[in-house]
Design a protein around this nucleic acid. Sequence first.
DNA 1: CGCCAATTTGACGAACTTCAAGGGTTGTGG
DNA 2: CCACAACCCTTGAAGTTCGTCAAATTGGCG
Lengths: 241, 241
Amino acid sequence: MPPNNPRPVQQGLSCRLTPDEWSRVSDCCTEIRQFPAKSAISRKGEPLDESLLLLGGIVGRHVPGPHRDLREMVAIEVPGDFVDLHSFPIGSLDHDVTAITAVRVAVYPHSALRRLMRESPDIGLSLWALTVMDAAIHRYWSFRIGALRATGRVANFLCEMELRLRRAGLGEDGKFDLPLTQSDLGEACGMSAVHVNRVIRDLRAAGYCTFRAGRVEIHDMAKLREIGSFEPGFLFGHWSD
Amino acid sequence: MPPNNPRPVQQGLSCRLTPDEWSRVSDCCTEIRQFPAKSAISRKGEPLDESLLLLGGIVGRHVPGPHRDLREMVAIEVPGDFVDLHSFPIGSLDHDVTAITAVRVAVYPHSALRRLMRESPDIGLSLWALTVMDAAIHRYWSFRIGALRATGRVANFLCEMELRLRRAGLGEDGKFDLPLTQSDLGEACGMSAVHVNRVIRDLRAAGYCTFRAGRVEIHDMAKLREIGSFEPGFLFGHWSD
DNA sequence: CGCCAATTTGACGAACTTCAAGGGTTGTGG
DNA sequence: CCACAACCCTTGAAGTTCGTCAAATTGGCG
């Protein structure tokens, strides 16, 4: 390990690793890298030989369709999440990864992770678990888009973001920054930006929450969770608050 | 390895493993098990200490909502797919697993898989890759439901099923069995059963495909893929036909 | 200030859900 | 063999939700 090895702070999803595991994973980090807002981090199909842990900022993952204007946001990563650990076992991704805000990431070369996994298969299992949690979040997004109508979708989405950002130490008391445009929100929830606007107006008028200038304030969490059919234990029951 | 160790045939997604890897994974199989149609295989949150490889039949995975009538089908497994390998790194699942048809599965105790992974981390990596492919399919489902409208969703879904079932050796020439009700299809595509009925009537009238009595016949694959915005390489470009 | 992107609102039509009813098929028990 | 129940499919009618188009407004930033 180089003496100037960067050692990211443990937060968010990565808290599933024990401190010792985290320490040994951190040893694999070779670099801290930055991306400006709205820049592409990687593209579908591109060969990848490193994975990124998000340290600061918000990252979006989009599945592109056959036309430029047809795509869906399939995931959002918050600090503490691995952005593209999925590329480790398979060498590339099926989707685009984009920096929504300016972003700071820790770089983990696949070669180092592979070496670590050969030395300590149990750590490999813990990292595997992180990608499995990621898949569970994907499934919940399917549930949201498929089973709920527009108002419920937005409410449910805000509840998930509140929970995940709070777990990442980036919000409390139902207040947090969510630097997404209404168009972003529409792409994440499978609805038009115009309709997103109407829905958040209704949510504001009802007194449940506000979403303005990239900041969310939830005033009635119980009600928002109810109309969003949101259950905080949606991730295996591991997050129950 | 017991002398009467069942050795499942390799097909579908599991073809990503080398024959040697497959052989060593197969050694972990302790049992062949059956489930009747419409029976529950496992439920959300239940502790699991084994994973199942689907040998025959169709399995559905549902994320349940807070009410009985609110749920979404988030995945369908076909023979050759692991049904719940996601439970291996984490010990439980966030969703229900249901036998849609009568089902035959190969049982892999987690303890045996863990032993195998410690002996051969590279095989662990290959199994990890299978769960990563699974997540890619989840993302594609999000794309389908979020970015397409009803007709495109159904067309896209049928294209995916055609590809996966053909890959599993269970269909050719655009004809295959898909033992789902129109309600099932609605739960998978995020639409009402009534509207599913109208959409498949339109697809039939247009001469693109038929879906009757659990059997699909695609008459114009190019057209169906076009209106479904379906790209056969959706899985990392690994499946390109 | 002036530009550009994002937000907001109205109007309209299209897409979709719900409710309701009828018909077909299958399996079961008399 | 028939009657019946259960389930699925099919269609119509009516109402709701949502997308599209268009235009005005706001807000951030050089």
